[in-house]
């Protein structure tokens, strides 16, 4: 069912959207954090989510790889339902192993890096390809070294995360996510925990990644990055999408009053 549904839409749009949300709701206890999110991320685009803290943008991002379960609505990644299987009009929860299988294709970068502290930078990048994909160690090591070079950290391969600066840790985290060859990358405020002078290096890596054609969903407070690199931008507040459009239009000429007041505070 779900496949047919998305196929029909994809015919209309030309391609299957990488992410499609239809009326996504999410509550924590009695607090409703997402109150009906509708949006579409096209393949190859850089999709920026901005908004005040508590607006639900990080929660929405975490729903995309099923770190959070949604309570209502539908969420599709590459045409497939997230966390469920639809059969005969009924929804069946996916097993943990099936969820894990789908997460392989979705890279995630966290605000607080979450590198594995007991492994070196190289081992961090090697871990998932070896453990999850069953790649041979030698091959994985070679690939990991290439990825570390790509994020400008070839000389830090043997260092433990505690021996790296925040910016370096975040770049290792990006390399770690890329090691699984994801078709979609999620960034959860990747520069918010960094000292200001380290933000640039991380954004440079993300810019390169965007130029290579990666589909990226980025929760960010970096309006400069959103304007220069972003293809679409959504402003969220209070669990709903308030305004969306091309970053240049939304950032320079916001239509909605709430967008205007938010941007006046951060720009």
């Amino acid at each position: 069912m779900s496949d047919k549904l998305s196929e029909r839409d994809s015919v209309a749009a030309g391609t299957t959207p990488m992410v499609r949300a239809e009326g996504v709701h999410k509550s924590f206890g009695h607090v409703e954090v997402l109150k009906g999110i509708d949006l579409e991320v096209r393949p190859g685009e850089v999709f920026c989510l901005i908004g005040p803290s508590g607006s639900g943008k990080s929660t929405f991002l975490r729903c995309i790889n099923h770190l959070e379960k949604i309570n209502a609505g539908r969420l599709y990644v590459d045409g497939e339902l997230v966390g469920y299987r639809q059969k005969g009009g009924k929804l069946y929860e996916l097993k943990d192993s099936e969820v894990a299988m789908k997460r392989r294709d979705i890279g995630m970068v966290f605000q607080r890096f979450n590198l594995f502290p007991h492994m070196t930078a190289l081992e961090n990048v090697m871990e998932a390809p070896v453990q999850v994909k069953g790649l041979a160690k030698g091959e994985a090591r070679e690939r990991a070294a290439q990825l570390l070079e790509r994020v400008g950290l070839a000389d830090k391969a043997g260092n433990y995360p505690s021996q790296l600066s925040g910016g370096q840790q975040q770049r290792v985290a990006i390399a770690r996510a890329l090691a699984m060859d994801p078709k979609l990358m999620l960034f959860d405020e990747p520069t918010s925990a960094l000292d200001p002078e380290l933000v640039g290096d991380v954004l440079d890596v993300m810019r390169d990644l965007a130029e290579s054609g990666m589909t990226m969903v980025v929760v960010t407070h970096e309006m400069g990055f959103a304007r220069e690199v972003g293809d679409s931008l959504v402003f969220m507040d209070g669990g709903v999408v308030v305004e969306s459009g091309h970053p240049r239009d939304v950032l320079t000429n916001p239509q909605h009053e709430r967008t205007q007041s938010f941007l006046s505070k951060v720009l």
């Binding site: 299988m101 789908k102 997460r103 995630m108 966290f110 594995f116 996510a177």
Partner: peptide, 13 residues
């Protein structure tokens, strides 16, 4: 966050 990072990479429980 360690568990989340591992799960996001597709690692099983």
């Amino acid at each position: 966050g360690q568990t989340e990072a591992a799960q996001a990479l597709g690692m099983s429980h």
